[in-house]
Every structure is written in C-alpha cells, then in structure tokens.
Amino acid sequence: MNPQFIADGLVAGAMIGLGAIGVTLTYSILRFSNFAHGEFISWGAYATLLTAGLIGYLAPSSNEGYGPFSVGWGVLVAGLIAMVLTGLLAVLLDRLLFRRLRRKGASITVVMASFGASMALRALLEFLFTSSPRYFSRDLQIAVPVVPGIRVTPDQMALLGMTVTLALAVHLILTQTHMGRSMRAVSENPALARVLGIDIDHVIHITWLLGGALACASGVMLGLVVQIRPYMGFDMLLPLFASAILGGIGSVPGAIIGALVVGVSEAATVQLIGAEWRAAVAFLLLIAVLLIRPSGLFGKRV
C-alpha cells in the first residue's frame, strides 16, 4: 500500500477537524446536533471567494500566487474577513431560529429546524452561484516529496500548518481565558454558570462565532484543495458528526483526533477500494463507535 494516503488523509482530516470542533462545541454548549453546520463551511468558502474577488479588483496583485502557493495574500485576507462574516451568519441563524426554539425547551425540534435551515441555506447558494464548481485558483501545483513515498503540495503544507495553529488557538482559548472557562462551565452546568454571573447568551454568541469562523476556515481549505460548490459543506456533514462522536462529543482534542481518523480512513478506502465509496467510511466508523463505545474516545456523557 502506497503511504501517500497518510498525507492525503491528514489534509482531509484537518479540514474535517476544523468543522468538527464547531459541531462538538455547539453540541456541548447548546445540546443539539446542528445539521446546518455544513452550510457554514459552504457559505464561508463562497464568502471568501467573493471577498477575494473584491480585493483582487481593488489590488490586482493580491491574486498572484504568493511564493510556491497557488493563491496570493488576497485569499488569506479574504478568508479572515469571511471567518468573521460566517461567524455572524451563525449568530444570525441562532437569533432568528434556534434561540426561539431553545426558549420553548424542545431540544429535538431545534435539530429539525437546523435540518430545515441547512436545506434552505444550501439551496440559496445554489440559486446564487449555480451548482457548477468554482476555484480560488486554476494553477496546478506540483507536489514535492517530504518523505519517501509521500508527496505534499505547498498549499497542503500551509493548510496543515494553519489547522494546527487554529486548533491550538481554540485549545488555549478554552483552557486559559475567562471566555473559555465560561464555555466549559456552561457546558457542564448552565444553571450554576448563571449563578456565578456568567451571561449564557453571551457565551452562546461566542460559541457560534467561533464555530462559524472555524467552519469557514475549513471551507476555504476545501476550496483550495478540491473545489467550491454549494454541496461541499453538506457532503462534509457526516464526517463532521462521525469525528465529533468518535472523539467524544464535547471534547475539542477528541474532535481533531476523530477527524484525523476519519480522514485517513477515507484516504485509505479511496486507495484500496475506490473513490466512489469514500462517503460510506464516515458512516461505518459512526456505526462502529455507536455499537462499541458510544461515548467516544474522550467523552464522558451520552
């Protein structure tokens, strides 16, 4: 077996992981599985595409590939702006839909609403941009060998580096800042958190901002490595859930490790069986976890 699948799997796992962090955070703080999370990935990618286009219009040099990379600084800046925009989209969706239902207290209705929102958001993208794929860059990149048998493109290396940075940043936020401690507190015991003076609505906002921003980053990576299309996020949904559950829902390191397992398993399947069966891998892993260890690798409660 060609070891290349490890590199491909890690890159895929990195993209899944950034989305899975958001899924696991929303789940542990708001206690529902957000089926619209995949749409934040798609909307983030399109928002970046549009913003990069705007920046390119104002500063044409921003579109030229920077150094060995396929895209220029324009996409990087656009990605940062789009992360904020996607975070705000998540907050808006919460305001318009989820919060109203949360107040009524039926948690499974919120899941249903997220499913409806996911369909509508995706269809809206399809209407706005059609279903034909878009690209940040048409440049073909040459993969360079890093270890014998494994080749990685400069873009992929940069993306892996960015994922590590973002995951570390989330970890530091959760463990070292007051907001992070507040998020953990709300996740464990919302009533006690209120008694301590923590504004739960504020914590929820930050959770959506963070989850949306990370989903956007995942979407940008997906757009760079594969392509941008309205279904990109929806197709990620099952891997996102599988990773979050595999890692133990609520656990951020668990979500990353779960995502890497899903990503590498998918890449191995593509190499051994065929690309057309890739989407089934996440499902099989999910079923295996639910049967063997429903609390996941690092989870406590189900």
Partner: peptide
C-alpha cells in the same frame, strides 16, 4: 443500534443511512 442513546444519535445515524443508501444506489 441507536435508540438506547440520546435522540440526536438516531438523527445522525439515519442521516448516515440515507447518504450510504444513496451511495449504494449510485455505485
């Protein structure tokens, strides 16, 4: 496989069933 777990898990698993069935019908 899922009814003894939290209700969300049934939702996610059935979602996975639909994705996988679609994959089988295609491939």
């Amino acid at each position: 496989a899922t009814l003894r777990l939290r209700s969300d898990y049934l939702a996610i698993t059935t979602f996975g069933v639909a994705v996988t069935v679609h994959l089988v019908t295609l491939n």
